[in-house]
Design a protein around this nucleic acid. Structure first.
Lengths: 120, 120
DNA sequence: CAGCATCCGAACCGATACTG
DNA sequence: CAGTATCGGTTCGGATGCTG
């Protein structure tokens, strides 16, 4: 197993404590940074389940309290290449968000969590 | 499907928009609140993979920069019934943390995410 | 409709220092 | 060893108001 995130626990040069394989949990910290933000997971899950969705519907379905918060979140997800933004040249304006391939990978791995959360 | 978290999209009294099933993504927000905190996911994943672990080893393995941050995180996880704290009456003092059954459920659902994160 | 700008309070996180 | 106390900087999130 390998990953790009640097940390001493995975550094080949570092001495292994017991000589065995040493799983690193730092990458998980990376996922959480991107996904821990408010609405991020919900956006990914919703887009995965329902396909391209408009901004306004995201606001409704996720019960967003402040539009700027959702707006910032969406920008981040776009920057992280997890979702894609597509705007149509219409009036009134229309914008749809959808998962990128990478976003879909994440969404698939989020499924078990969502199902469990829903029964809690 | 049902869950305890209240939200209008799941309110039985609320009118369904298209008469069909309406998946609610709010519970996911709940998971994230507990798990979005720094070190939380890593602690759960590590305990799941390696069993009861001492405080000091958690600090090392997770490359914790500030002990108070980890300390707070652990308290939260205990409060949320995801991990268990067991202290031994020895000198020097020893404390071990382990997953509760509920914590293990979460850990299992975190696995796919960890594996994916490690390859990113 | 789909947002961004701004402001402000709350929460979080890290560093340092100290205890049982 | 295994924490807690405190403090300050930074980020986050909510509310309001305004544009293309």
């Amino acid at each position: 197993m390998s990953h790009t995130r640097e940390c001493a626990c995975c550094d080949p040069g570092a001495p292994a404590s017991s000589g065995g394989e040493m799983t690193c949990y730092c990458p998980l910290g990376g996922v959480i940074e991107t996904v821990g933000r408010k609405y991020a997971m919900q956006v990914v899950a919703l887009l995965g389940a329902e396909g391209p969705t408009r901004y306004g519907e995201l606001e409704e379905r996720l019960e967003v309290t402040s539009s700027s918060t959702l707006s910032d979140c969406l920008s981040d997800l776009v920057d992280e290449n997890l979702i894609e933004r597509r705007s149509f040249d219409e009036v009134p304006p229309r914008v749809e968000y959808s998962l990128t391939p990478r976003g879909r990978q994440l969404e698939e791995r989020l499924q078990p969590l969502l199902e469990w959360a829903a029964t809690e």
